[in-house]
Every structure is written in structure tokens, then in C-alpha cells.
Amino acid sequence: MRNPRVGWALLSPTLIILLIFGFAPFVYVLVVGFFDWNVFAAEDGLRFNGLDNFRRLVFDELFLSSVGLTIRFAVFAIASEIVLGFALAQMLTRNFPGKSLFRIIHTFPLMVAPIAVGAIWRLLVIPGFGPVPFFLDRWFDLTYQIGTYPDQALMTSVIMDIWHWTPFVTLTMLAGLSSIPREPVEQAKVDGANRLQVFWYVTLPFLRPVLLTTVFIRIMDAIRTVDEVWMLAGGGPGTRFTGIYIWRVTSPAASADWGYGSSVSLITLYLTIVLCWLLFIAISGRRKGEVE
């Protein structure tokens, strides 16, 4: 009765759009990544140069430092978000009047356009009239200038990211916490476990899939981050993350070396695909020995 051909026909518009705008660019970078293609060179066109782009890439200090910076950024931001998000979710499992109002306000940053998040934080930290540099100087005698000090710029990006994305962690954790069955927790309490033990041996194992999903999604977001950090610091020192580096190298307006740009894209896609696949494995419950 249900002819698969009809199914494929229903699916085809989606597949066609994704093949053209999602898959074709992938194939393109896959091919061009192995070529030398300098748009402004005397002879336009592709010249095969094997692994040379990648040879250049693995010694490209700018790229490597951007990766290092992204890792630092991701570790600081994601660790804080997980801890904070979990605490907030724990507090939201209780009922108190006005809870939904607090939750709505807490969720708001999630829907703000990243570029606007950047604008918001730029206005806060801008030297001259931003309140953050002013009060840090007044109260702590601290010179705060993200344009000059890379570490301050990095920490500002981290705090901005925490402001923006903690609500996401809170919401996923809340969903995870509310799906934990009551009985094992009660049983553990009857058996005389204290709160820490309940958390460690009961809550955490149940929460692990949610935790994994959240962490993977946030890592991939960190790799992609461009807009907000760019708006905040304009690519100043301390904020040249991988996303921004790729953008500068591959941006059609700024770069002429399209072959090299493609190889940079490829490496990032490689990382993303690996992470995606791990996420897929994690959520499809194919781990061995999951719960006992």
C-alpha cells in the first residue's frame, strides 16, 4: 500500500536542496583542498599539488594558535556552563511561585542573535564609556582593555559565551533531571546514601546521555563561533578562534588563496564530523555495558 517511491518523492525536495547547498560545497572543498588555486595569480585555474596545502597547514602558526585558543575558550566556557547549568536546573526542579517568570528571563539570551550578543557586550566593555572597565578601574585598580590584553579578551569572550549559552545547558539538564525515575533515588536514600552518593551513583549515570549530548553540541558550537566574538573584539588579540581564522582565510572578499582556504575548511569539517559521529553514537545508545 505504501510505495517507497512516493516516500522518496516526498523526501526529494529536501534532499535536492541539501545536496546542492550542503553536500556540493563539501565535495568542492574536498577536491579543491588538494589543488593550488590562487585567484590573482597570472594564470587562473587549478593546479594539483597533492598534500602541499596540508603540509603548509600543519605548520601554520596562526592556524595552530587559533586551535589552541579555541580549546582554551571551549574548556573554560563549557566547564563553567555545565556546572552553572546543572546547579540552576537543580534549583528549577523545585516549585516556587514565579518560577516560570525566572525561567523565561533566564532563557532569553538563547534567542538573541549572536551578532547582537556581541554588540551588547561590546557596549559593556568599550573603553571610554563602558561600565565594566570603569568600575574595574575604580574598585580594583585594574586596567581593563580587551584591545590590548589578549587574556582579558579571551576571558571576556568566555564570560559572554557563558551569558549566552548557560540557559541552553540549564534547559537540557532540566529535561534530563525530570526524566530520572523516582524509585532508584528513594531506594538509595533508604539504603543510607548521603546526597553526594545519590548524586554520584544514581543521578549522574542517568544524566550521562544528556550530559554527553550537551557537551558535544557545545563543542561544535565553539568551533563554529564567529559572529559574537567578531562583533565583540573585531578579531583582536586573544580572540582569534578557529572559526574566525577560517572565515578570514576562506572569506571570498579577503582571501585569494582558495585552495588553501579549502584545505582549512576540510580540517574543520573533519573535526566536526568526528564529533557529530561521536554524538550520534552517544545518543543512539550503542555503548556497551550501558547501565549494568
Partner: peptide
Amino acid sequence: METGKPPPPQGKRGESIKENGFLPF
């Protein structure tokens, strides 16, 4: 999210799923 013990997924034609490999899934 399934929280219970997941059944080992069945291969499409039954032959490709490995359960005793060294990989953790």
C-alpha cells in the same frame, strides 16, 4: 533518551553488527 538497558541494535541483514570487538560500542 532511553535510560534503560539498550538492546543491541540488529543489523539490517543481520551479519554486520559486531558485539565482541575491542571498540567500546
